[in-house]
């Protein structure tokens, strides 16, 4: 009870503190802060739109890449593979979660970025180059590379939870499906259908991690406060700009603006979380209603 309350208190404290410290930026820029894409510390003009864009797009893209992989891995580990392989495999995946993000960042810049530049991006450009997402010079770093790094980082979380959810489905159900003449694939489909609210919850957790990730992203995203349709172009995220500029921010307005970015980051996380909650809620109600 005490600990539960203390968490609420801490969250309230953080919000109140950020609200108070960002007062200057809010007074000067108002709502324009969220819709302006001008970020120039020298002229003291601040607008957070490019960072919001970068955070949301990179995280959603990461989830989009990671979700099928995670579900596939979880199903494989739970339903298909034999016991001898299962333990080492799941151990390896869990180890992915323990790697510090700075290591991911360095790996991203020294291994993934050249690979993206020399192989993946030219390939995408030659096949899907007519889409606006794949235009521009392939530098190797940029929004797409950051999303891929994030996808790798959130895969272990989503996989682990999806596995647990699948495990929780009673064996009797599976046996019943087989008894009715379902193929293995149909049985898995049924299990996944039953586990969907749990999988959704897992995605939310993964997304939360992706939104807050700082170090690895900052190493590969290119750190440029601009909005571009192309996924090859450099972008910037909210967490990265705070980490990069806060220590050396000199003007009061600059500090205050960075704190407001933090507040927005909080709000974005909150909105996405509640949206996911709502989704889970409507899902479960539908199944119960049947």
């Amino acid at each position: 009870m005490i600990f539960a309350c203390s968490i609420i208190l801490i969250v309230l404290f953080i919000i109140a503190e950020m609200f108070q410290d960002s007062v200057e930026a809010r007074e000067v820029f108002g709502w324009k802060f969220i819709f302006s894409s001008d970020w120039d510390p020298v002229k003291e003009k601040f607008g957070a739109l490019p960072f919001i864009f970068g955070t949301v797009v990179s995280s959603l893209l990461a989830l989009l890449i990671s979700l099928p992989i995670s579900i596939g891995v979880a199903v494989f580990l739970n339903e298909l593979v034999n016991k001898a392989l299962r333990t080492p495999l799941s151990f390896l995946i869990e180890i992915l979660a323990a790697i510090p993000s700075i290591i991911y960042g360095f790996w991203g810049i020294f291994v993934l970025a050249p690979f993206m530049r020399n192989t993946v991006q030219p390939l995408l450009q030659s096949t899907l180059g007519f889409l606006p997402f794949f235009k521009g010079t392939p530098y190797g770093t940029g929004l797409l590379t950051a999303s891929i790094i994030l996808a790798i980082m959130i895969t272990p979380i989503i996989t682990a939870i999806t596995r647990d959810v699948l495990k929780a489905i009673p064996t009797a159900q599976r046996e019943a499906a087989y008894a009715l003449g379902a193929t293995k694939w149909e049985a898995i489909k049924m299990a996944l259908l039953n586990a969907r609210s749990g999988i959704l919850g897992a995605s939310v957790l993964g997304l939360g991690r992706a939104i807050g990730e700082t170090m690895a992203v900052t190493m590969v995203i290119g750190n440029r406060a601009e909005i571009s349709a192309s996924l090859f172009e450099p972008a910037y995220t909210m967490a990265s700009v705070i980490a990069n500029e806060f220590a050396e921010a000199s003007g009061n307005l600059h500090v205050s603006s960075l704190i407001e970015v933090g507040l927005i980051l909080f709000a974005v996380t909150f909105i996405i979380n509640s949206f996911a909650r709502l989704l889970i809620y409507s899902f479960t109600r539908k199944t119960e209603g049947k």
């Binding site: 120039d40 360095f106 810049i109 770093t141 190493m219 440029r224 990069n244 921010a249």
Partner: peptide, 25 residues
């Protein structure tokens, strides 16, 4: 300033980040 808006290019974090970019690109 310690932070300016550069009109072109991309950013690396720290000396090691910039060096990493230059070595890779």
């Amino acid at each position: 300033a310690k932070d300016v808006r550069f009109p072109v290019g991309q950013g690396g974090k720290g000396n090691e980040g910039v060096t990493g970019l230059v070595k890779q690109l």
